[in-house]
């Protein structure tokens, strides 16, 4: 008899390439998406990889990817399936709302009867940079939750994880089922193989309406931050050090 198989849900988001140069849309409340490249959010990508590795280690199981958003998220769901996820669920909305709790409600409604041993999220998504949805979903499901995990193991119905704190780290243990949000550095997401891409086309992708409830957080304005004044090179080599120290003392007043 092999190790028991695990059933894992991974909630992913589609976000723009973080290296992009952003412009504000004419509405003034969103970025201009024209010309931007979108993909699975970085942290969600790590979460997909972690799920696939846990499934591989257990010698079976299932990885289901879930996303809330318009039809464009299907592209990210297909990509996760081309990496190896077994099936996908789109919880359809017109746009991804800024209200993290509303998104969590939609996800909790979908996940509650799914029989998942583990529900994974990225620790936050690049666009909202808020980190609300994973933890709020756990609370709504009444499941134990460990956030920003940089190491994760599961065995015999229990999980153990490492969380990096500011200047320290916590080692925690918890029972399954549980919700875990994934930090960077835990696993490098695999590239989909050609075979994986072909297989993903045939894997099931189910679409249903998202049960968001009342949305109570709205973006009133989006703006670019003020530019820093242009940089200044004060000199070359060790000869410039006295001038730097003088400026730090008299101009910047930080020394």
């Amino acid at each position: 008899m092999g190790a028991p198989t695990v059933k894992i849900a991974v909630c992913i988001k589609r976000t723009p390439d973080s290296e992009s140069r952003f412009k504000i849309a004419p509405s003034g409340t969103a970025i201009d998406e024209a010309g931007l490249k979108f993909d699975i959010d970085d942290f969600a990508g790590y979460a997909v990889e972690v799920a696939l590795q846990l499934n591989e280690k257990s010698g079976g199981g299932e990885t289901v990817v879930v996303a809330v958003g318009p039809d464009l998220v299907q592209e990210s769901l297909r990509k996760a399936m081309s990496m190896g996820a077994d099936r996908a669920v789109q919880l359809k909305t017109d746009a991804a709302p800024a209200d993290g709790l509303a998104v969590a409600k939609a996800l909790a409604a979908e996940l509650k009867d799914g029989g998942f041993d583990l529900v994974l999220f990225g620790k936050h998504a690049f666009d909202t940079s808020a980190g609300v949805v994973g933890t709020a979903t756990a609370e709504l499901l009444g499941l134990p939750c460990v956030t920003a995990v940089s190491k994760l193991d599961i065995a015999n119905g229990r999980g153990s994880a490492r969380r990096d704190l500011e200047g320290a780290a916590e080692m925690v243990e918890f029972p399954l089922p549980a919700v875990v949000t994934i930090d960077e550095g835990i696993a490098r997401p695999r590239y989909p193989s050609l075979k994986g891409i072909m297989a993903a086309k045939k894997k099931p992708l189910e679409t249903k309406p998202a049960q968001l409830g009342v949305v109570r957080v709205a973006v009133q304005k989006a703006e670019l931050p003020p530019e820093r004044p242009a940089g200044r090179i004060i000199g070359e080599g060790t000869a410039a050090v006295p001038e730097l120290v003088r400026l730090l003392q008299t101009e910047a007043k930080v020394l």
């Binding site: 993290g100 709790l101 620790k123 808020a130 609300v132 933890t135 609370e139 939750c145 920003a148």
Partner: peptide, 18 residues
């Protein structure tokens, strides 16, 4: 970051982070 969303869910309160 860990506590805020727990409170939001328990209180059914809208949340803004950071």
């Amino acid at each position: 970051r860990d506590l805020g969303p727990r409170l939001a869910a328990k209180l059914d309160a809208p949340i803004a982070s950071d």
